[in-house]
């Protein structure tokens, strides 16, 4: 069987396809405020009051137009995390993130939604936990380019200890 299999060939092919995505009105405003003023803007639904991130035109739950812009705090709480031991490729750069590294979901104060991002912290279990307080670290203003990578990472707020148990 193995021998027979060796007679069959497979052909390696790489597909490299460039795309160009329109950000739309709301995402453009979000990215421009982030780039120019270091602000993180969310959008609030007039009906259910959920403060949604990233900002989108329509509330999926209420089917109404979201029209109230809300500036979020740069601090929030970690609601889920992982320590990644695999060299995951960053699809936006084509380069692997160097393992091990921590990433997680943070709910910024004032937001209903969460933001997934890298957490700049030593990748050990006693340094990271659900409930940890974090802050957002932005690129220095002169280096910002107007996409989500202007948020470089999350960082734990100082003076915290992992709760026991």
């Amino acid at each position: 069987m193995t021998k027979k299999e060796k007679e069959l060939i497979s052909i390696p092919i790489t597909v490299n396809v460039p795309y160009r995505f329109a950000a739309g009105k709301y995402m453009t405003k979000f990215l421009m405020e982030l780039k120019n003023n270091g602000k993180i803007l969310a959008i609030k639904c007039p009906k259910c009051g959920r403060v949604q991130l990233p900002p989108r035109v329509v509330c999926a739950q209420c089917h109404v137009k979201n029209d109230e812009w809300v500036e979020l705090s740069h601090e929030g709480t970690l609601v889920a995390f992982t320590i990644m031991y695999l060299p995951l490729t960053d699809p936006t750069t084509g380069k692997p993130h160097k393992p091990p590294f921590v990433y997680g979901s943070v709910r910024l104060d004032g937001a209903t939604s969460v933001l997934d991002h890298l957490v700049n912290i030593e990748p050990t279990m006693d340094k990271v936990w659900v409930g940890m307080r974090c802050k957002v670290v932005l690129r220095p203003q002169k280096d910002r380019i107007g996409d989500l990578s202007d948020i470089r990472c999350l960082e734990p707020l100082p003076g915290q200890k992992k709760p026991r148990g």
């Binding site: 889920a80 992982t82 960053d90 699809p91 990433y103």
Partner: peptide
């Protein structure tokens, strides 16, 4: 494409966060 793709690419990370939560 404009939100969260830098960490996308494997279901393992998603389910890891589900596990931690």
């Amino acid at each position: 494409p404009l939100w969260g793709r830098s960490l996308a690419g494997a279901a393992v990370g998603y389910f890891a966060m589900m596990g931690s939560s």
